[in-house]
Design a protein around this nucleic acid. Sequence first.
DNA 1: CAAAATCGCGCAAGAACTTGCAACAATTCT
DNA 2: AGAATTGTTGCAAGTTCTTGCGCGATTTTG
Lengths: 343, 343
Amino acid sequence: MSQRLAEVAKKVGVSEATVSRVLNEKPGVSEATRQAVLTALDVLGYERPTKLRGERARLVGLFLPELNNPIFPAFGEVVGGGLAQNGYTPVLCTQSAGGITEADYVELLLQQQVSGVVFVGGQYTQQDAPHDHYARLTEVGLPTVLVNAPIDGLGFATVSTDDAVAAEQAIAHLHQLGHTRIGLLLGPRDHVPSLRKLTAARAVARSRGLTIDEDQISHSLYSLEAGQAGATRLLDAGVTGILCASDPLALGAIRAVRRAGLEVPTDVSVIGFDDSALMNAVDPPLTTVRQPIEPMGRMVIELLVAQISGAVVANDEFFFEPELVVRGSTGPVSAAARERKPT
Amino acid sequence: MSQRLAEVAKKVGVSEATVSRVLNEKPGVSEATRQAVLTALDVLGYERPTKLRGERARLVGLFLPELNNPIFPAFGEVVGGGLAQNGYTPVLCTQSAGGITEADYVELLLQQQVSGVVFVGGQYTQQDAPHDHYARLTEVGLPTVLVNAPIDGLGFATVSTDDAVAAEQAIAHLHQLGHTRIGLLLGPRDHVPSLRKLTAARAVARSRGLTIDEDQISHSLYSLEAGQAGATRLLDAGVTGILCASDPLALGAIRAVRRAGLEVPTDVSVIGFDDSALMNAVDPPLTTVRQPIEPMGRMVIELLVAQISGAVVANDEFFFEPELVVRGSTGPVSAAARERKPT
DNA sequence: CAAAATCGCGCAAGAACTTGCAACAATTCT
DNA sequence: AGAATTGTTGCAAGTTCTTGCGCGATTTTG
């Protein structure tokens, strides 16, 4: 490994001086020789010093928790597109089971000298998960934007859907349809957006004279199958309307309803959350609370780009109002349903 | 910018020698001093030489053409997970409109010294798109694996779903149900997998005494809306069964059928392709030809890892047999449908 | 067609970085 | 307590890389 520069020089048949000039973008080297040197550099596995790598690739880390729930690819598309338009290249980091951890990804991105990081989901959304690696980001002052949950004490700019409004709209919709026993199908117990929905739902319910007991709340993982299992428990508790924390959970709930020999929305109404792709094509078309991902994505880009260009942005949490999209999975509570009792 | 090392040394209050030792991970430096030097390095914006950036991040570029069609996130999940299990970090590259081109991404990955590249889709699947940047990959001998279409003359290992078998299964299924006027809703005219399906479908149709005329073939972009438009044309031609080149196209076709005042599958049968997520939850549940993405993904990983570790793998195209999944969007041709004539 | 200008390149001096060695301090052993 | 051991650091010599200068080749100009 010794005599690296000399070795390259010998390979191309030029002097060390010429190689050095190529490496430092100095003038006085013909294009032909320059290419020859660069080729030899690659052939010999010589790592080009950073200066030579064109202008620094302006990379931005983009964390998506998973790709199964279509809302995350959708966020990825919006944010990734916005980054590209601003001249940044998104490096998508998805947590795949058994693989690389979020902390590993953060180190990796720091090594790659990324210009910034966007988290659309990750450990920060779960209170009990390790949060230590986020401190690394503040340490080196890396521009960072979070989506849908803040991290206390680290002062990251955050862009969130207003979960309280979402819960309020959903509960109001169900209540107006005559539902009084409403179940909540949420994510894990320490998941911030789920907690926020829970708190808001309880408050709204109370103000409308309803109660949401413990057995009307189900925490599960964010998969269709887990949703089906959780919803089955809720049905046992006699609920006639289910508010779900994601669209896949809602699809699981619909499956659970059918498995119980009931129909949606005749016997049980189901509301999803996200309005991810194809939710108008499922059976029945899903009533759901839409996250305004386009404006949120634009805000994320704006905050990130501002930080990268050195501006000190307000490290507030910016809330975006969701929108209830009424389709076919909710309806008036039926007489039969009103009779149905907890088992 | 001169005297870089000396400058750092002065800042920390040690000799150049010590800084040099830290930079090269040499022993004989106390942990405290090491940290002090590293901090000063960051503070002064000194770019750490690559050696110091932990062990080289083993990156692998993963090209997905888009994220709207759920089959691509699904591929991403399988391949990304497999890479992680083998100690590689996937860098997902998705073509976002107006942003960075595929050629740019390739250059970027080369600069980042990736260990290999996987293409799940991209310009190589379209015969008329520029292919020049792929030659760069062979030039530097970067391990590369393609999915679902080969590139002539460059000798990349390729893993594909057998489009011929897919077309055969779909046509056979429709024919058995009594359909004789079968339409093809395909991707762009120069899209290799679509061409392969077209060729195979025509051959199978001929062997069964059917014909597929020009007006029974529709080429469009791969979006639900484009599919709807294309399918409308096919319905005008009087087809009773439509074979689509992707699931979103099939959903577009179903929408077109309904727009025409007809029903699926009573009046028109629709077959998708991919069996992407949620296709059993749409209305009606979609009959589709499943791409075996799990085994394909494993093969991709195997081929890539073998190449990275220096093995010379056969640059063949490996074909995987798809599987017809019969659900609710196909049914026997009705008397009314048989009467329906081209407009 | 020759003189002049320009360009590309190697030489060699010097700058930047690495490393063997010895000095010094802290700790452990006798 | 004193000696030995271990670990940390700076000095200075050795490598490796950068750059000013001039030579020769090629192109341009009168």
